[in-house]
């Protein structure tokens, strides 16, 4: 049976569960999340470190550290050209997955300083992925690589291509990574905190670059970040994650102007914004990610929640529909509640 995917969608993740498996013990890292990405859309996964957002992206790439991590349930449906694949059922080491990786879906990583191989020249690292997936000859692949370097805004690409990664700055290296990821015009780009390690001015340039390139090459983007400023700049839709679950999702304007879930509100309140009153206090979310409720069936955010009530300690809330495009996983949304 071939999986089917709505024609508007590039990626659909359904009830994805990932766990650290050691022996008979299973420690869940991602607890049944669902989200989708439309064609040419940029979707942000937002959350504190350790909430499972990077793991989700690695699962889509088939690059989970197995063992100990493993997909234990759910589907990852990816469109690749005319076909649709369920990546959760594909062997990550298998030939079929390798044909998709780098071609239909590719990834930019957080650490530009260590993500390029120090013993190979910059150009050769991009040429490798082009030749792997396009069947272009050596010379044609080289030309395509130069074109990619030019597209990501690297000056004198012929020179840079012949240099080694250590001869480039962090921003330049991240540009090389972007060129590498987009070289085979993938339908889906995963960007895992690609600007976190860079200084602020470089950050802005790289963000613009990613946005423009993915728009012009009709690539959908899953952008992972903990930085709400970045989200505001780049996202069409946002999914907020907390402890391996999506707690709120919706269009970016909705999330910023009408946040529903107490966690999202907390995140927004802890970030300074241009509109906030000068000298007004930022309010951090109380507690830490490590604070878990005593009752395992309770809402996981309850110990840190400002607006929790009795029901929260008893049962985990389902994902309530706030509007057709906006959902929140909080008992506050239940009908008859304020």
């Amino acid at each position: 049976m071939t999986p089917t995917l709505h024609e508007d969608l590039q990626l659909q993740v359904r009830d994805l569960e990932i766990a650290v498996v050691s022996g008979a013990e299973r420690k869940p890292v991602v607890k049944g999340i669902s989200f989708d990405i439309r064609r040419n859309e940029t979707v942000c996964l937002v959350g504190e470190s350790g909430c499972g957002k990077s793991v989700t992206a690695l699962a889509v790439m088939g690059l989970l550290q197995t063992p100990p991590m493993r997909i234990v349930g759910g589907e990852i449906l990816l469109r690749a050209g005319e076909e649709v694949f369920d990546l959760a059922r594909l062997d990550p080491r298998g030939r079929a997955f390798r044909r998709l990786r780098g071609a239909a879906v590719s990834m930019i990583f957080q650490e530009p300083m260590t993500s390029l191989n120090p013993v190979h020249r910059n150009g050769a690292q991009i040429v490798e992925v082009i030749r792997r997936h396009t069947g272009l000859g050596r010379r044609a692949a080289w030309q395509r690589m130069l074109e990619m370097l030019r597209l990501v805004g690297i000056p004198s690409p012929e020179v840079r291509a012949r240099q080694y990664p250590h001869e480039l700055s962090g921003g330049m290296r991240q540009r090389v990574m972007i060129a590498l990821a987009l070289a085979c015009r993938p339908g889906l780009l995963l960007a895992d905190e690609p600007t976190t390690a860079l200084d602020v001015t470089t950050q802005a340039q790289i963000l613009t670059q990613i946005r423009e390139l993915s728009r012009s090459s009709r690539t959908s983007t899953l952008f992972i970040t903990h930085d709400l400023g970045v989200v505001a700049q780049i996202a069409d839709r946002v999914h907020v994650m907390y402890l391996g679950e999506v707690v709120e999702s919706g269009p970016v304007r909705e999330i910023f102007h009408r946040p529903r879930h107490p966690y999202t509100r907390g995140l927004l309140a802890s970030v300074p914004s241009i509109e906030s009153e000068p000298f007004s206090r930022l309010t951090p979310i109380r507690g830490t990610v490590a604070d878990l409720p005593e009752n395992p069936a309770a809402c996981p955010f309850e110990p840190r929640c400002e607006s929790g009530f009795g029901l929260c300690r008893g049962r985990t809330p389902p994902l309530f529909e706030v509007s057709t495009s906006h959902r929140s996983k909080c008992w506050l949304e239940q009908e008859g509640r304020p």
């Binding site: 790439m61 690059l63 080491r93 997955f97 390798r98 044909r99 998709l100 990786r101 780098g102 071609a103 590719s106 990834m107 990583f109 650490e111 260590t114 993500s115 390029l116 191989n117 120090p118 013993v119 190979h120 690292q125 490798e128 992925v129 792997r132 997936h133 990574m177 590498l180 990821a181």
Partner: peptide, 25 residues
């Protein structure tokens, strides 16, 4: 290392990852 993950993300075979990307390092 991170660059091995990058190499794997290109969809190349594990043998090539080990021999061409890991071995020289």
């Amino acid at each position: 290392e991170d660059y091995i993950r990058t190499a794997r993300s290109k969809g190349i075979g594990e043998l090539r990852v080990v021999l061409r990307h890991a071995l020289p390092n």
